[in-house]
């Protein structure tokens, strides 16, 4: 079943995420993908995440399609102008890629080429708009296409924005993304189900699927790092303590993920598992939850 079919069927969707590395070595990533292939509805492939130069998303998505996996092609607006973005979307379709996640992208300053020239000619909203136009058979300036794609567009939302202004801006942008054609949303990592429930109440009636983000807590250090440096991610102290006190830290991390996924089953339409190299833990977690 494709991601689009899964969304339309109304089932609880599970997506995962892999991040190509720096260099051409993809063997271990393909192995990880094979392990979770039959447990997830789609696998996202990140686009130079954190603005670090890496192997591209499109190529790796194509490798996943070869394995019979439905990939989600993450596309940021950081590195390409509107010509390159549109061209890449058509190319992706030609390579069998069906889902696109439209992102603004991190600033190059955050990555390993900090003085690279940022583009951001389009942003997540206008990129979704462009995907809609390509799907309808024209490019963004209205020229007709010979053969149009039928990409399934998604976007992201950050339910943990840290102040009222940031939250209102998130919601307004989410509405704009839906108007521009986003069919599904994958959220930033969620650790506080009560706060997430409030967020879901606030967007009640929005016509798009929402997959709650799960980031596996690999260590206490990682939790603290995210609290300090990752916008909108907040790991509550008791969870950090739980990992700290546990003898088997991997098990503790998985236990937390299981609780979060269980909680989300009643709150939203799916989960997006960001496992940062621990892709092999996904089947265990899903077994526990019964997915």
């Amino acid at each position: 079943m494709s991601l689009r079919e899964a969304c339309e069927s109304g089932k609880f969707v599970v997506t995962a995420e892999v991040a190509p590395g720096k260099g051409t070595d993809v063997e271990h990533l393909l192995k990880d993908a094979a392990i979770i292939k039959d447990r997830v509805d789609a696998i996202n492939v990140t686009d130079l995440q954190s603005s670090v130069m890496r192997l591209g998303s499109m190529a790796f998505c194509h490798l996943l399609t070869d394995m019979g996996i439905d990939p989600v092609f993450q596309v940021t607006c950081r590195d390409r102008n509107c010509l390159a973005l549109q061209s890449d979307l058509l190319s992706a379709w030609a390579l069998g890629i069906r889902n696109v996640l439209a992102l603004t992208g991190d600033h190059p300053k955050l990555g390993d080429h900090p003085t690279a020239r940022p583009v951001f000619e389009l942003d997540s909203v206008t990129l979704l708009d462009v995907i809609g136009k390509l799907n309808s058979g024209v490019d963004m300036v209205g020229n007709e296409l010979k053969g149009a794609p039928d990409l399934f567009p998604g976007a992201v939302v950050n339910p943990g924005a840290d102040n009222e202004a940031a939250m209102d801006l998130q919601i307004m942008k989410m509405e704009k993304k839906i108007e521009a054609g986003a069919k599904f949303f994958q959220t930033q990592g969620v650790y506080d189900l009560d706060a997430f429930e409030k967020f879901m109440k606030r967007i009640e009636g929005f016509k798009a699927k929402v997959f709650g983000g799960i980031i596996l807590l690999k260590s206490v250090g990682m939790a603290r790092f995210m609290n300090k440096n990752v916008a909108g991610v907040f790991v509550p102290e008791p969870l950090i303590q739980e990992i700290k006190d546990a003898e088997d830290k991997v098990q503790a991390s998985m236990n937390i993920a299981v609780r979060l996924v269980k909680g989300m089953k009643d709150l939203c339409d799916g989960v997006h598992m960001m496992t940062l190299g621990w892709e092999s833990k996904i089947p265990g977690i899903l077994d526990e939850v019964g997915l």
Binding site: T104, D162, A165
Partner: peptide, 16 residues
Amino acid sequence: CAKGLLNGACGGASEG
């Protein structure tokens, strides 16, 4: 806006 965005915040801000 460091990204010159025209259609709202990118979501990367923290504590404003």
